[in-house]
Structure formats: C-alpha cells, structure tokens
C-alpha cells in the first residue's frame, strides 16, 4: 500500500476559505439556509466551514446539523460488512429552507442519493446544494454533481482518497492511497 499527498494543510486552508466565500456569495446572511454535514466524515468539514463563516464573515445563528444515511443506503444486506450507523443530530426543520449538504469526498454519488431521501424526513427543503472537498470525477454511478467543489481528483478504482482532519486525525491532509 502506498500513499501520495494530494493536499497539505496550507492548501486545505485556502480551499476552505474559498468554499466559505462562495457560500456567502450565494447565501448572504444564511437566514434561510441550513448546513448539513454527512456522517461520519463530512462532519469535520462542516464544522470547519461553520467556524470560518462565523469567525470571518460574522454569520450569526448558523444552523448546522449532521445527517446519518445508514438506514437509507441502497446496499443493505448486499455488502460483505454490516453497516455501521452514526448519530443524526438535526434539531431544526428543513421545510422551505435551502439545504447545503457537506461531505469530504464525492465518489459514486450513492451516499448523496440516500441523503436526498433521508433529508425529507425533516421536511421539504426549497432547494438542496452539495459542497465537497474532493470530487472524484469519472467514478459516478448516478447523475449527481457538486455545486461547490474543493479539488477535482482523477483516481482509479483501486485507489482511495483519504481526508484527514486536525480535530480527529491530528493533521489536515488529503492522501491518494493505492491498495
């Protein structure tokens, strides 16, 4: 197994600021927008984006939730390994709100497909957008594209994109891992 560094801490920081900036451009004061981080790994990215929005753009009362899509996945009983659920924490309704899904890597699009169904349990959003740090293009199984993308990566199927976060893994970095 070998790994190659795709993004270092400095590059990630620049990208996070750009993504936050693009969000502000579209959503202004976020009065009708909610952020939803995808469990388990999109949580860290969502936390970081929220921090930048609050500290550098003085956005107040920003609603952030975390959505677990385990029970909405289309591969229940199909994989080798059992599915492991994480906690869903959404203490607001998304009825008529603009929802921004936040995930670290967009790969096949199946998770986002499940999330589009799952979020309806909390109301009918007026629109849904997708923000991802890494967009693995050419590997999509479904017609799903990000609205805000950090970096596009061309990876083949036996390669994995590994995103590490300071809060959880002790460093900010993105690696391309070959099995």
């Amino acid at each position: 197994m070998s790994q190659k560094l795709l993004l270092n801490a400095k590059e990630i920081n620049i990208i996070l600021h750009r993504l936050a900036c693009q969000l502000v451009e579209k959503h202004l004061d976020f009065s009708n927008t909610v952020l939803v981080g995808m469990q388990p790994r999109g949580k860290y990215l969502a936390d970081r984006i929220k921090k930048i929005l609050e500290e550098e753009y003085q956005i107040q009362n920003l609603a952030l939730g975390f959505l677990d899509i385990t029970f909405f996945r289309d591969d229940f009983r199909r994989g080798e390994k059992p599915l492991e659920a994480s906690e869903t924490q959404i203490d607001f309704l998304v009825e008529d709100k603009k929802v921004v899904f936040i995930d670290d890597v967009l790969y096949t699009g199946r998770s986002i497909n499940a999330a589009l169904t799952a979020i309806q349990s909390f109301g009918r959003p007026s629109e849904v957008e997708l923000l991802t740090l890494i967009d693995r293009r050419f590997s999509r199984h479904l017609p799903i594209q990000p609205d805000y993308r950090g970096r596009q990566v061309d990876a083949i199927n036996n390669e994995k994109v590994l995103v590490k976060w300071q809060d959880n893994d002790g460093e900010d970095a993105v690696y391309l891992v070959t099995k």
């Binding site: 029970f71 909405f72 009983r77 659920a85 799952a118 309806q120 349990s121 909390f122 109301g123």
Partner: peptide
C-alpha cells in the same frame, strides 16, 4: 442501534427504507 432508531421515531417522518425487500 436502538439509540439511532429512537432518534428516527422522533422525526417528523418516522420511517426509514432499510427493510423494503
């Protein structure tokens, strides 16, 4: 697992599609 489902049954729509087949 029941902790997760307790959260699910307190949502406005209290249903997940896991066992549809």
């Amino acid at each position: 697992t029941a902790d997760h489902f307790k959260e699910v049954i307190n949502r406005p729509i209290k249903k997940v599609p896991s066992l549809r087949d």
